[in-house]
Design a protein around this nucleic acid. Structure first.
Length: 535
RNA sequence: GGGCCUGUAGCUCAGUCAGGUAGAGCGUCGGACUUUUAAUCCGAUGGUCGCGGGUUCGAACCCCGUCAGGCCCGCCA
């Protein structure tokens, strides 16, 4: 059974209606790591719906969280906002400094700025959660009741956190962080509590009272999370392994939520996604790839497959080079399979059956529109990469595919894939080993490995190419002819040509590539090859 | 110090919850095709299941220990 179905089954044992929740702090640019958070939730929700449950899938935007520091991508003017809530400060402009104008005129915040492209990507990927803005929820009094309970039972909560996390809370600790005189959550001390007011004084010498029913502050993180479970009624949440450790925020949360009078949600801990060869992704290290950027390279189904095929507790390495080719080709293979038919085979062992079921489950989760069949395009990524490099115009690509019988009609899906492929080829992510390259200097090693016959063909080939017209058809005829002239198989002519021009044993169709190249340069290279052999 | 996750074929992983003859894909090798789309098709190859003990008729799976890698325990998914 697919992991999402296993989770759905666990939920079904508890109740018929569920709220599956996800949440992200919009503190900087989103990356594909964040996609795992939301896709994991989406897949559980989808599986639960398929199992006949009523499911509300929500995405909580943690806009009430404070800006922790002036990140590298922010200008120095952000110093004044450290400690202030992300949904209450201006967004950065191109130069990294605050865009006051949009903030004042449209209320365009820091949180909005980073969230918007992510939401756009989600739409494309087929994830449609109900959005809950956390800061707004505080301001609208959604947290009021639970905040009161938290403040009333401050000692119980304090005890729970200290016991479970094993760390000691400071003396003035209180389960409510009031906003100080400058709108920040730091540099402020609670001096008293009389519902609904929490009295405070800050390091700027100001004092005041924060109304906990109006969002004039927020619950500290370890209480904020269980409080959300409470008022939203969350019954299932997937979260990163950082929250899942013993003594981490889930283990304190599950106890705190009970103090607040609710049940903890069904947890699902997932591993992180790293960028191949660069460790965990982090915005400050700059080794991120955003969902938008990823979508320019591959279609959404393939991105979904990446998350769907790995069990949540497996770390995923996202590789924008060869790994992407493998992943995309795997997608094509899976799409072409008939799982129903495979499962009908009685001879399958239990083990093999599980594998087929998991593959089928992963593909079900990979579709952008739930329930829709994925169609195989019949063209592998690898193949398309070749064609996209050798054919300048799209229609040439389609003609070539139709000529070989691989393709009957050009679907919008294929056109879309070709567009992304062309973008990928231009980008720095495209792997070198996939890049078609004609040598500029002879590859001596390859040439010296040629035998007597092949050396003769080499000379014949040079003569033939010198004589022929410089277009794909003529070149395509000349290469094999150069071998036929010597009563050798056409194949050996290609072997020689690859050795001379690309330094490889085999390769992509040569004629169209050569036709696109400068004739003189190719001829010069071939002459140089003959020179090498002459010695 | 406490805890979590991972370790199975060259690579990526399934199988561990409910113990019953080691599984898939990729790769590699071989063959078919031969004016070749690094294509396609067919076939083969491949593992002391990290290591050591224990329980059992039987252990990749359960228990104990141990090694290695990653991570968490001051709000990075």
């Amino acid at each position: 059974m697919h992991w999402a179905d296993v989770a759905a089954q666990a939920l079904a044992h508890k109740s018929d209606t569920h709220v599956v929740s996800t949440g992200i702090t919009p503190s900087g640019e989103f990356h594909i790591g964040h996609l795992r958070e939301i896709l994991t939730g989406d897949m559980i929700a989808r599986a639960a719906k398929d199992a006949g449950l009523t499911v509300d899938f929500v995405f909580i935007i943690d806009s009430a969280d404070p800006l922790r520091k002036v990140y590298d991508f922010l200008g120095p003017e952000y110093e004044q906002f450290v400690g202030n809530q992300l949904g209450a400060i201006p967004a950065p402009k191109e130069d990294g400094n605050p865009d006051w104008e949009r903030f004042q005129n449209e209320g365009w915040t820091y949180a909005n700025h980073f969230l918007e492209p992510f939401l756009k990507a989600l739409k494309e990927i087929g994830v449609r959660p109900r959005l809950i803005d956390n800061l707004e929820s505080y301001r609208n009094g959604r947290f009021a009741e639970l905040s009161k309970t938290a403040c009333d039972r401050a000692d119980d909560i304090r005890e729970a956190i200290e016991r479970i996390s094993g760390r000691e809370l400071p003396d003035g600790w209180f389960p409510w962080s009031p906003l100080n005189s400058r709108g920040g959550l730091d540099k402020v001390r609670v001096t008293g509590y009389e519902y609904p007011l929490v009295h405070w004084e800050d390091e700027y010498g100001a004092t005041g009272s924060s109304d906990i029913t109006k969002g004039e502050g927020k619950l500290p993180w370890r209480i904020d999370w269980p409080a959300k479970w409470g008022w939203i009624g969350v019954t299932c949440e997937a979260f990163g392994k950082d929250h899942g450790a013993a003594g981490g925020s889930y283990s304190t949360g599950r106890e705190i939520v009970q103090i607040l009078g609710h049940e903890p949600p069904h947890p699902l801990v997932y591993e992180w996604i790293s960028l191949k060869g660069q460790g965990a992704m982090s915005s400050s290290a700059g080794n991120t790839i955003g969902p938008i950027e990823a979508l320019r390279l591959v279609p959404p189904e393939i991105l979904r497959l990446l998350v769907a095929k790995s069990k949540p507790n497996k770390a995923i390495e996202f590789d924008t080079g060869m790994g992407l080719v493998t992943l995309a080709d795997e997608f094509e293979r899976l799409a072409a399979r008939d799982f129903q038919q495979e499962l009908a085979n009685e001879e399958l062992s239990r083990r093999q059956k599980v594998q087929v079921e998991d593959a089928a489950g992963a593909m079900k989760m990979a579709t952008v529109v739930s329930g829709q069949e994925v169609q195989a395009t019949a063209v592998t990524f690898r193949h398309l990469a070749l064609l996209a490099q050798t054919k300048k115009s799209d229609s040439d690509v389609w003609m070539s595919l139709q000529a070989s019988g691989a393709l009957k009609e050009i679907t919008p899906q294929l056109q879309d894939r070709l567009n992304r492929m062309r973008y990928w080829i231009q980008s720095s992510h495209f792997p070198n080993e996939m890049r078609i390259k004609i040598l500029t200097e002879p590859n001596t090693t390859m040439l010296e490995a040629l035998d007597e016959v092949e050396r003769r063909i080499m000379k014949s080939l040079v003569v033939a190419l010198n004589a022929c017209e410089w277009n794909a058809t003529a070149i395509g005829a000349s290469i094999p002819q150069s071998a036929k002239d010597l009563d050798e198989s056409p194949r050996s002519a290609f072997k020689v040509a690859y050795a001379a021009l690309m330094g490889t044993e085999k390769g992509p169709r040569l004629a169209p590539i050569l036709a696109e190249m400068d004739r003189e340069e190719i001829l010069r290279l071939l002459d140089a090859c003959v020179q090498v052999l002459g010695n």
